[in-house]
């Protein structure tokens, strides 16, 4: 396949202590610094008398501290993939390895932000209690919990809303609560399943910047699933483009945009347009049933 874009997987994460990162100046890191390793993940749903192969073969890894986006046509099995990685769905074959340990159920080092924020927050708890509940389960002391909860709410800009109930807040604010809960949990990998699909465009831009900011500040590894091509290019260091069902990876696109991103500046650069164009074409091809070389349709 001829492409202008590097398709080889970058093994080194961007060193985010430096203000800006350009491709090629990464120090290669040992493979032990892989936070999340997905190997030959396969999922076949057993329906009434028929089998549906949702995910055929997914293999990729996410280095510690990396922000990787997964984008694909609708119905590409993105949610299946994410639930599989999160340990919420038994896999047909293949394995997911988080921090060197194989995932068999929801792992301790992972937090998930779901698309349906309104249904993922506990409506009978206040915002603060929602963020605090997983920490309680971890067995943290009260003072420590309080500190982490306040810090997380502060980080997402909701320091004043701790006593409200989630349903008293707007959709964007509710998703901030879900992000705060995930961040306070201090996961090694943060999974986000189309988290901004249900909020309006302006709120979405704010939340995208929030994710970038938190990722920079906390050094967490982020795997961000979306159907929005621009969002994927804007947020990610890499974009994994999925085929249609049964899902495989079409291409692993490295996003060589400057590390400091800005909704107006970044989105109007020539490079952003090129990358967007490229990913867009890939998704269009995926929709038409295009599969990588050597793959039988």
């Amino acid at each position: 396949m001829t492409s202008l874009f590097p398709t080889t997987r970058r093994t080194a994460p961007a060193d985010r202590t430096r203000p800006s990162t350009t491709p090629g100046d990464h120090v290669s890191t040992p493979s032990s610094d892989v936070a999340l390793d997905v190997r030959a993940l396969k999922k076949i749903y057993e329906g009434a008398g028929r089998q549906v192969e949702a995910v055929r073969d997914l293999t990729f890894s996410v280095a510690r501290g990396e922000l990787v986006c997964i984008v694909g046509p609708s119905g590409a099995g993105k949610t299946t993939l994410l639930r599989g990685i999160a340990g919420l769905l038994p896999l047909t074959s293949g394995e997911v390895v988080l921090d060197g340990a194989r995932v068999t159920g929801p792992p301790a080092g992972m937090a998930v932000v779901f698309q349906e924020y309104g249904r993922s927050l506990f409506p009978w708890l206040t915002v603060r209690q929602n963020v605090e509940l997983p920490l309680k389960e971890k067995g943290l002391k009260k003072a420590e919990r309080r500190e982490k909860v306040e810090a997380a709410l502060e980080a997402v800009g909701l320091a004043d809303s701790g006593d409200a109930h989630p349903w008293q807040l707007s959709g964007g604010m509710q998703q901030r609560v879900a992000i705060a809960r995930a961040v306070a949990y201090e996961p090694s990998v943060l999974l986000m399943d189309e988290p901004f699909a249900a909020v309006d465009a302006q709120t979405r831009a704010d939340l995208e910047d929030l994710v970038r900011t938190l990722w920079h500040r906390l050094g967490v590894t982020v795997l961000f699933v979306t159907h929005d091509i621009e969002e994927a290019v804007y947020l990610g260091q890499r974009v994994l483009v999925l085929s249609n069902r049964p899902t495989v990876i079409l291409e692993d696109v490295t996003v060589d945009l400057p590390d400091v991103r800005d909704q107006l500046e970044t989105r109007s650069t020539a490079r952003f347009a090129e990358l967007r164009h490229h990913v867009y074409e890939l998704v269009q091809k995926a929709k038409k049933g295009y599969r990588p070389d050597g793959e039988a349709v």
Binding site: G105, A108, F114, E137
Partner: peptide, 15 residues
């Protein structure tokens, strides 16, 4: 989704 949330944050059975 609530049940998934509960599972992914590893809430104990009792909780």
């Amino acid at each position: 989704v609530l049940v998934d949330t509960s599972r992914s944050y590893r809430l104990r059975r009792r909780t």
